[in-house]
Design a protein around this nucleic acid. Structure first.
Length: 163
DNA sequence: GCCAACGTTGGC
DNA sequence: GCCAACGTTGGC
């Protein structure tokens, strides 16, 4: 059965490295450097228009900073072929790329970060890799209910068009 | 800065 | 195929 569209996602980024404000500044960003198979498989399931919660990890506090959107389907992550890159993977060849990326663009900056603690307190977020202790998954699917609950916690109204 | 939890690597 | 060692993530 095909996945219902749009599928919602959550993307983690360390704001010291790349924040939601950075995404707004650049307008569009390749989500490259993902080197985890589970996360990669989720990237490959993404389709243009899928909404993403943009999550600041390794931050004080950690939390969701805004909403982004997937620009198009996954394609090979260029960095895997670049020997000078930290994300170089000598096992990858252009014929047999191992890693994928999508591009994302900003949609909506939250007026204030929705902290992880706030999400943890929401019933919709009780069962998620994000709130599960020890989970390090950096790209994960989010239910529509979780997405809506996050928007509500951010005080955002009238954005059902995203879903 | 600490450290628990996790994924990956590599020896056997 | 097992599993110990290691490196990384990410909350605190």
């Amino acid at each position: 059965m095909p996945t219902a569209r749009p599928q919602c996602w959550l993307l983690k980024s360390e704001p010291d490295v790349f924040s939601y404000a950075d995404l707004v500044r650049v307008g569009r960003e390749p989500w490259n450097g993902v080197r985890n198979y589970q996360a990669r498989n989720f990237l490959r399931e993404m389709r243009a228009g899928d909404p993403c919660l943009f999550y600041h990890s390794n931050a004080k506090p950690a939390g969701v900073a805004g909403v982004a959107r997937v620009c198009g389907e996954a394609r090979p992550d260029d960095l895997q072929f670049d020997p000078a890159s930290d994300f170089h993977d000598p096992r990858s060849t252009p014929d047999q790329p191992r890693w994928s990326m999508v591009e994302v663009e900003p949609v909506l900056a939250f007026a204030a970060l929705v902290p992880l603690d706030t999400l943890r307190a929401l019933p919709e977020w009780q069962d998620s890799p994000l709130t599960r202790r020890g989970s390090r998954l950096s790209v994960l699917p989010v239910t529509k209910e979780q997405f809506r609950a996050a928007l509500r916690a951010a005080g955002v109204e009238g954005h059902d068009d995203l879903l």
